[in-house]
Amino acid sequence: MDDREMTGASARRRRRFDGWTLLVWIAGGAVYLFLVVPVLVIILSAFSPNPYPEFPPTEFSLRWFREVFQSEPWMRAIGFSLWLMVIVTALTVALGTTAAYGISRLEFRGKQALLSFMLSPLMIPQVVMGIALLYLFTAMGIIRTMAGLVIGHILVSFPYVIRTVGVSLSNLDPKLERASMSLGAGPVQTFFRITLPLIRPGIVAGGVFSAVTSFGEVSISLFVVSPSNMTVPVRIFNYIDQTFDPSVNAISVLFIAVAVLALIIIERTIGLTKVM
């Protein structure tokens, strides 16, 4: 054995074993497991033919998916939720993008307070927001209408767009806008020709968040929704509040699929790590 090999071997022997790092990795792994297990359980149950979940699963079946697709009320709810999602997303993106742009380009006293106000729907107890809107819509006469539902959903999706577009705007080099204006473009032209194309990733991410938020919203919807025109989450809520129906598993799998799709869109447009 030559000298070099020996020193290599002795260095390896002395390599220290790090107990703490190992412990943290085990703990972290357990936390991710805790996060993912309920989702896996739903997916497994959805593909099982039995009305009650079992573990480990014994058979594979699409029975509950068939039941969902053959059920007229479920399909109507899905259609309604999707329709609502499209309207809410379009309106929220338009309102949120313009507001985020306006506030980012202005300097005035109380700007920070105004920004907090714009983000506050994230933090206000949802039950409180629900009943406040219930009272208002009752007074306005739009309770249990599509309009009320749209307004409620915009309210909770709005902060996400403000945030994602705000991040894009603050990463934008202000010199680009100044360059455009020095070349003779006015503020409106500069916004549409320079700013808008450059903050598109933030807008897309905000749109995805609005869509997903609207599609899954239940806390406010419960207060303002009409019994004849229910969204999917409200219908699920009513179902599991009263009975146990495995077709909810199948519906849930559809929701998870939408979430994964949304993730893929975000990853493709700006990358996951940048949004959150």
Binding site: L35, V39, I42, P53, V218, I236, S252, F255
Partner: peptide, 16 residues
């Protein structure tokens, strides 16, 4: 992904 899934569904998993 849980953030993008409705709270009803996440809670439903715990009932199951």
């Amino acid at each position: 992904s849980p953030l993008l899934t409705s709270v009803v569904i996440r809670t439903f998993a715990w009932i199951v």
